[in-house]
Simulated scan of single mutants.
Amino acid sequence: MTRGSRNVAVVGVALSDCGRVPDATPYTLHAQAARRALADAGLPRRLIDGFASAGLGTLAPVEVADYLGLRPTWVDSTSVGGATWEVMAAHAADAIAAGHANAVLLAYGSTARSDVKAGRRTGTLSFGGRGPTQFEVPYGHTLIAKYAMAARRHMIEYGTTAEQLAQVAVQARANAALNPEAMFRDPLTVDDVLSGPVIADPFTKLHCCLRSDGGAAVLLTAEEYVRDCRTPPVWILGTGEAVSHAAMSEWEDFTVSPAAASGRLAFERAGVGPPEMDFAQLYDAFTYMTLVTLEDLGFCGKGEGGAYVTDARLTVTDGALPVNTDGGGLSAQHPGMRGLFLLVEAVRQLRGEAGTRQVRARDGGLPRLGVASGTGGWFCSSGTVVLGRN
């Protein structure tokens, strides 16, 4: 898609060491992922004139850019939770298309797991008692409780079952079994998920994402630099972003996420639709997120998500729409704001670099189109990116 005067491609992607990395710092994971992404692209560091990062440092992304030895003339520190990286990718693509930057690096790193193990953080997220959330804090709403309430509302409205939600975790694990870098690869059954300890009704432990260390980086550049890259370009075809509520009491419908708006915009701008997608990479901190995002992006009708996710529809091996092909946040890795990992996996799939978990298009060849959609907060924000290859 032409955004301004230049087309924009992703030319480098990488992960840092992920999973259990007790000797790392968030800064070293940023740097490791960034170096690997540059090596993947085959472009020199001096070309980077844009940088985007969030979640680390008092002056993010200034501190991280300084650590990486970058002096960018375009920066972004948008922070909207898990949707941050899809939103940043959209902003970076707009900046490159308009000529405000030539190459933008997106980088993230977190030692969330090691911090909890070492007692550097409690593992419980607190969102404070000021602003709109002050009216809910006295009732003890945790992050997971907010998602659990939304899931229960969907169950009441549409008859969605705990077994259907469990299918999301089971199929994510089936994909993770094909990913040698995934933290958890042992097979799961629906009974395994349902018999686990209840964390927040209707979620048991395996309805919830794991906690890991890890980092990721993505390099976007203008079309004229593509010929200098060692990897085939993956084009940014369309993007969309949307925000919803801060307080749960202001959310009009617990069964509709802001992906309904961001997805519509992304697909319209790309000039393609959900039926043309070869795969989807969706934020999955909890199983319900996958189900409702599939509905809101238009892969099935509202209320039909429970039926849609059955029969191994989401798996690489048998699925009509492979989803979270690396195992997702439920089984592969989840160091915090996982949205950048969605973009890395989408690009690897489109370049045919996913190994045993490689998706095939309907004609048996490599996939041509895919979508990545991140969700932030408690369905407070959404960013959607449609990607494609030549």
Rank of each mutant, 00 (worst) to 15 (best):
R121P: 04
A118C: 02
R153Y: 05
R120Q: 10
P132H: 04
G131C: 05
Y147K: 01
T122V: 08
Y147T: 02
I144H: 04
H154F: 03
S126T: 13
Y139A: 13
A151T: 07
R130L: 12
G128T: 01
M149E: 06
A172V: 05
M155Q: 13
E163D: 14
T133N: 10
T161G: 08
A150E: 10
R152A: 13
N175L: 07
G123A: 03
I156F: 13
R152Y: 08
G129P: 05
Y158N: 07
A118S: 09
T124I: 15
R121S: 14
V170Q: 00
H154K: 01
A166W: 01
F135N: 12
P138E: 04
G119Y: 05
R153D: 13
I156M: 13
E163W: 02
F127W: 12
Q171L: 07
R130Y: 15
G159Y: 05
T122K: 10
Y139T: 11
V170A: 02
A148P: 09
G128K: 05
H154A: 15
A174P: 00
Y158T: 05
M155D: 01
S126D: 15
R153F: 07
A174W: 07
R152E: 09
M155K: 02
V168R: 04
A151K: 06
P138T: 03
F127I: 10
N175V: 06
R121H: 11
R173S: 03
P132T: 02
N175I: 08
T122R: 09
R173V: 03
R153A: 13
I144K: 05
Q164N: 05
G159C: 06
L143H: 14
H154P: 07
P132Y: 04
A118H: 10
Q167G: 08
Y139E: 09
T160W: 06
T161C: 05
T133E: 10
A166R: 02
T161L: 06
P138M: 06
M149P: 09
N175P: 05
G128C: 06
